[in-house]
């Protein structure tokens, strides 16, 4: 069924009575919320949002699963992910060091599109469900291979309690403590 056009026209404006009525209506809505504000403000440092599992947050690398295919570095739209060459011990031949490529990420450039996570053929990358991470300097945002394998520290967790936002029919977003 294709869309239909519905021609509408503006209400004719009434006289004095209509004016008084709409003034009172506006004031009544104002007073209603003045009495019961129905807030959903997040008191940020005291509370923090616990996102759902699908949230595209910071990316963590699992080195053991990586097959060095470099697909993540190639798909990255903002060139945030780069491959680095490392010399490491080959588990099969402990005496012979081998050279391998692993991805590292630059969070100055990352836009959290999640292409790298989606393209990884072995699920060696995954999203953490949070984005409130603080770096002290820009240089810290270039993650080393070691740092890329750890979930970044989240200062909110130590300072606040988690809340979950839910959609409510009456009040819009409501926060629920966990």
């Amino acid at each position: 069924m294709p869309a239909r056009v519905s021609l509408k026209s503006l209400k004719r404006r009434g006289g004095l009575f209509e004016g008084i009525k709409s003034n009172i209506q506006a004031l009544a809505v104002g007073v209603k919320y003045f009495i019961d504000p129905q807030r959903s403000t997040l008191l940020y440092p005291k509370e923090y949002i616990e996102h759902r599992p699908g949230y595209r947050g910071f990316i963590v690398f699992i080195k053991d699963k990586c097959i060095s295919c470099a697909a993540c570095a190639r798909i990255c739209p903002s060139a945030a992910m780069k491959m680095v060459r490392v010399t490491e011990v080959d588990p099969k031949h402990p005496d012979k060091p081998r050279q391998k490529q692993y991805p590292v990420i630059n969070y100055q450039r990352c836009i959290f599109c999640g292409y790298c996570v989606d393209i990884c053929p072995t699920e060696a990358l995954y999203h953490t469900p949070f984005q409130d991470v603080v770096y002290e300097s820009l240089a810290d945002m270039f993650l080393t291979l070691e740092a890329f394998q750890l979930e970044p520290g989240r200062p909110s967790v130590s300072e606040g309690s988690p809340v979950v936002y839910e959609v409510d029919e009456e009040r819009g977003l409501i926060k629920r403590r966990r």
């Binding site: 104002g30 919320y33 003045f34 504000p37 129905q38 807030r39 959903s40 403000t41 008191l43």
Partner: peptide, 13 residues
């Protein structure tokens, strides 16, 4: 504060 209440915020806190 009053504006914040009507606007469903907390305001200065």
């Amino acid at each position: 504060k009053a504006a914040a209440r009507v606007q469903r915020r907390i305001g200065p806190y």
